[in-house]
Design a protein around this nucleic acid. Sequence first.
DNA 1: TATGACTATATCGTTGAGCGATACAGGATA
DNA 2: TATCCTGTATCGCTCAACGATATAGTCATA
Lengths: 282, 282
Amino acid sequence: MNVLSIAFGAQMTFRSVHRANAQRAINLESDAEGDPLFLRSVARVMQVLNAFNDAHRPLTLSEIATAARIDRSAAQRIVHTLRKLGYIARDDDDRGYMLGLRVLDLTLDFMRLNPLVKRASPILLELRRRVSERVDLSLFDDTRVLYAMRMPSKREAFHATLPGHSVPVYCSSGGVAILARLDDEQARDIVARSDRTPFTAFTMREVEEVMQAVEETRRKGFACLTNQIMNEEVAIGVAITAHDGRPLAAIHIAGSLLEWSKEEFVANFSGLVMEAADAIGS
Amino acid sequence: MNVLSIAFGAQMTFRSVHRANAQRAINLESDAEGDPLFLRSVARVMQVLNAFNDAHRPLTLSEIATAARIDRSAAQRIVHTLRKLGYIARDDDDRGYMLGLRVLDLTLDFMRLNPLVKRASPILLELRRRVSERVDLSLFDDTRVLYAMRMPSKREAFHATLPGHSVPVYCSSGGVAILARLDDEQARDIVARSDRTPFTAFTMREVEEVMQAVEETRRKGFACLTNQIMNEEVAIGVAITAHDGRPLAAIHIAGSLLEWSKEEFVANFSGLVMEAADAIGS
DNA sequence: TATGACTATATCGTTGAGCGATACAGGATA
DNA sequence: TATCCTGTATCGCTCAACGATATAGTCATA
């Protein structure tokens, strides 16, 4: 079992892709400004839980305080309480703090209650049964799409299956399919505000390049992008909308250009993805 | 695409298994009692996020208040703030509250930072490559084990892949493997405190029955249980321990008795699982 | 093995953030 | 139409939490 090489490969991919997961920082002052219902104490709690977002190892109390932009005393009390409740835990070797098991309870509750995930799950599963490519559901969140479910093909690295993983809207097939359901102004604004550091040599760089893909998606009903996030990746995305037409999410099928030409991939799968998106319905 | 029948099946299984996910309620008064570092405000926030635990649809403000055992005013302010921060969202049709997308950021951070998950991932992946049965990693949490990663076999229903899903320690193969690493007193205590409502006609009911399986596990180095959570399921579990021998987690391989006899399953896989657990190491 | 720089943990008097009672508007149900 | 539920908004009082400070344990390094 050649563990090291696999671990290394996984780690690399992970680093390069994590960028999109950087969250908007909570700004206590500006958020609380003129909002009598905004509780600073609540925001502080979430700032502490968020402190782990840009960490790559368990944190000390001071590190948490710095990341959450509160003083050590406040951090001490909040961490103490969250620990008692199971949302923060000490490292197995008692070397630092990390998120606790109960975070996963929230994850499950999110999934269980999200109507979109509920409706999409059986259909995605059926889709996955029919094709042996990767199938996923991603949720729209401003400049990023966030993977809620991912059913990997056998050759995929593990971490890709983690819910919560996200990629920029502008260079993912599902993202572009979502942009195509917005008006040009909104779409352009999202692309413009995105961090457009390229993932590969082929990642789109210009706003207008993206808008062209959006235009094409509107005509065809699906988006098909290649080599955007990873080399040799080809993906087809179709948007899922609310009753009023707002795009909420997208489903994708992703495969490898080593196995398929773009044309073959489209010919084989675009119909299926659209059919599935339709079944999940508005 | 026979969507309905699949959706129905998934729903059924889900209901029957969700029981183990009921969390210990947060008791503000008793937790705060004589602990000057315990912040009631923090606990209230988590009570609100927990309110969704026993919900099966989006909640109204009053329902949240009731579930979180706080008054409507407090719920209003906390929900308002959490919404502004993205941890709570309204239903797509604006009919109720549910958990927001940012919960998934916490999920990913948990997974990313958890040393056990980090170490186990590539090995689980390799294991999954070698066998075509379901492979998973579950984390020990008092009377339950909580699935952190699950790599399903093709025939599995979707929701089974959700992290956060949990089952009782006493009747899961990984759980019994974990119990085997505790002393009898601790193990017996956990089993005794567990809700032992049976899942199938074969689910173990008596404490001593479980302790016998624990004893056998100590001799063999792995636990193999059948028909405990689901009918026709056979699973092998091996514990993963910390440096000091404390059990932290377990990995499993699970298959179907329609394909394997228990003896065949053990002969084929017990070695592999033990090898993998060893590689993840203490 | 002393030094210094970290950790986590504990204490306590002061004060303003948040409590909670109350009021109001819109939508659904009967 | 009346009732009951939503979500939302307002405002003085008060006690929970703040944050400065002190202590003890742990780990390098000299």
